[in-house]
């Protein structure tokens, strides 16, 4: 290709890459810039360059007169819920996907279509279903009471155990608001994603590798433990991290199932930007810190994985 003909092609490539970068970076840069802005009491906010929003996040607005770790606690719950739910989702999903890949091609396709279809359910829809299922008056607690299961739990002493875990009131089992319900719903929410992410690496494992292990004396559990799991370690960690990042932004689940003192930054950010306080700069600062925290988790996980591979 001549230089004259190559120039328009190169310009087009540069323009395309520039447009993609602008679309990716501009919103982030805007949020980053706003995070240094200033909230005007009783009005909107103005551009600025001050660190008060970040200071408020880490030690509270009234520091040094008083200190508050409220938003650090929200950050902790964001990371905690997301990590536990993503690990639980992958851990419970893995055996299912492994067994699924051993089925006939036709059966595998049916299952995959089912899980792809289930992705059309929005978070709101899923939470609504679990809200009904776990509600004290019409859900599982009512079923426990009506069937006499609650009394049985009381007789066997398990009711006190559930109370100590925060899963029962003095009268009946209670799932809302609890960490249990929050994590359970978040796990459910990302389960189809876990299936779809784990399926490709597991389905690629050559069956002869499994049979080779069997001919060397390895039973089904040993095969999974010593061959399958190590072979797909990287995709497993990748899936956990992807689900973790996805769940950091969970909003409806937290709003419905988590106690207010155990809310996450996604709730707090929404409250600041669109809620009662209308403090976009502080909301932006929280979003930036959540982003950095997620990046730190991803980088450390990657480092741990690389060390493990060595």
């Amino acid at each position: 290709m001549s230089k004259a003909a190559a120039l328009p092609t190169r310009l087009a490539k540069v323009a395309y890459i520039g447009a993609v970068l602008a679309m990716c970076i501009t919103p982030f840069l805007l949020v980053f810039a706003i995070s240094f802005g200033e909230k005007i009491e009783g009005a909107a906010w103005v551009w600025g360059f001050q660190f008060d929003n970040y200071k408020r996040f880490f030690v509270g607005a009234d520091y040094p007169n008083s200190i508050s770790f409220l938003y650090l606690k929200f950050l902790w719950y964001s990371l905690y819920y997301a990590m536990i739910a993503s690990i639980l989702a992958v851990a419970t999903c893995f055996p299912f996907v492994w067994l699924m890949t051993r089925l006939s091609r036709r059966a595998q396709t049916v299952w995959l279509v089912f899980f792809l279809a289930s992705l059309t359910l929005s978070e709101v829809f899923v939470v609504m279903g679990w809200d009904i299922l776990l509600s004290n008056r019409s859900g599982l607690p009512a079923l426990f009471k009506e069937t006499g299961l609650t009394d049985l739990l009381k007789e066997t002493g398990w009711f006190d155990v559930l109370r100590s875990w925060g899963l029962a009131s003095p009268r009946n089992v209670r799932f809302k608001p609890t960490e249990f319900a929050t994590i359970l719903t978040m796990t459910y929410l990302v389960w189809p994603y876990a299936v779809i992410l784990l399926y490709p690496p597991l389905s690629k494992i050559n069956n002869e590798i499994i049979e080779a292990a069997r001919t060397m004396g390895a039973g089904p559990v040993t095969v999974v433990r010593t061959v399958v799991l190590p072979m797909v370690r990287t995709p497993i960690v990748g899936t956990v991290l992807l689900l973790f990042v996805f769940l950091l932004g969970a909003y409806v689940t937290i709003a419905v199932f988590a106690a207010p003192e155990k809310h996450t930054l996604s709730i707090s950010v929404y409250e600041a930007v669109r809620g009662a306080t209308l403090n976009a700069p502080f909301g932006s600062a929280q979003a930036i810190i959540l982003l950095i925290a997620a990046a730190v988790v991803l980088v450390f996980s990657r480092m741990a994985l690389e060390r493990g591979e060595k």
């Binding site: 002869e208 049979e211 292990a213 001919t215 390895a218 072979m231 370690r233």
Partner: peptide, 29 residues
């Protein structure tokens, strides 16, 4: 079952474990 018989078998694709080095492959059984 195959795991009870423990007949050594070489497969068409060799079916070596990619996550293990050569020595660990050999000593797997």
């Amino acid at each position: 079952s195959a795991e009870q018989r423990k007949f050594g078998m070489v497969f068409q694709s060799f079916a070596l474990f990619p996550h293990l080095n050569v020595a660990r492959n050999v000593s797997y059984s």
